[in-house]
Amino acid sequence: MLCVPQLPELLLLAALTATARGQTVGSQQLQPWLIGLTAVVVFLFVVFVLLLVGRLWRLRTRREHEDSSEQQPAHSMERAAYSNAAAEKDSDDEREKSKATSL
């Protein structure tokens, strides 16, 4: 599961950045471990945004596909099919005969 930084984690990162700057005397460079931690947090945030955009894109595409499929008939044969009353009558007669059993 993807770990998304929440507000407390971001505040902790900001506090660590402030304390790390206070520990280096006369220089504005960050500690190497803090640079790595910041890079990981930024990377995870970018991945989270990309996954969110991808999911929204798939939902939108699926919704558009379902809307277009509702407008078309469910089966392609239904468009070209015609009703044959004689065939329907024959099938009804055959069903009734199949219900009768001989003892």
Rank of each mutant, 00 (worst) to 15 (best):
18 A>C: 12
98 S>D: 13
56 L>I: 06
41 V>M: 00
53 V>M: 12
60 R>T: 09
71 Q>D: 04
13 L>M: 06
98 S>A: 15
30 L>Y: 03
81 A>S: 08
52 L>D: 05
26 G>Q: 00
100 A>L: 15
98 S>V: 13
90 D>R: 15
8 P>N: 03
3 C>M: 14
90 D>E: 13
16 L>F: 08
10 L>N: 05
33 W>H: 15
36 G>A: 15
75 H>R: 14
14 A>F: 04
54 G>H: 03
45 F>L: 15
83 S>Y: 14
18 A>H: 14
79 R>S: 06
34 L>S: 01
40 V>E: 04
74 A>W: 01
60 R>D: 07
5 P>I: 10
40 V>G: 00
51 L>P: 01
48 F>V: 04
14 A>L: 11
35 I>N: 02
73 P>D: 04
103 L>G: 11
78 E>S: 09
40 V>S: 01
68 S>P: 01
21 R>H: 05
64 E>P: 02
15 A>W: 06
53 V>P: 03
17 T>N: 12
40 V>A: 08
82 Y>S: 08
64 E>I: 08
85 A>L: 13
16 L>C: 13
61 T>S: 14
57 W>M: 14
1 M>D: 08
80 A>M: 12
66 E>F: 02
33 W>K: 13
86 A>W: 03
85 A>F: 04
24 T>I: 12
20 A>M: 10
35 I>P: 00
14 A>G: 02
50 L>N: 07
46 V>R: 01
26 G>M: 05
25 V>F: 04
83 S>V: 15
33 W>E: 14
28 Q>C: 10
97 K>T: 06
49 V>K: 06
33 W>P: 04
83 S>W: 14
25 V>E: 09
42 V>Y: 02
11 L>N: 03
34 L>Y: 02
53 V>S: 07
59 L>P: 02
78 E>T: 09
76 S>M: 12
89 K>I: 06
42 V>L: 09
39 A>I: 00
90 D>A: 13
13 L>W: 02
48 F>P: 01
38 T>K: 04
50 L>C: 08
75 H>K: 12
49 V>I: 11
56 L>E: 01
65 H>K: 12
87 A>C: 05
12 L>E: 09
89 K>T: 06
68 S>Q: 13
7 L>G: 02
63 R>L: 13
21 R>A: 00
50 L>I: 11
90 D>H: 10
34 L>N: 00
102 S>P: 02
43 F>E: 05
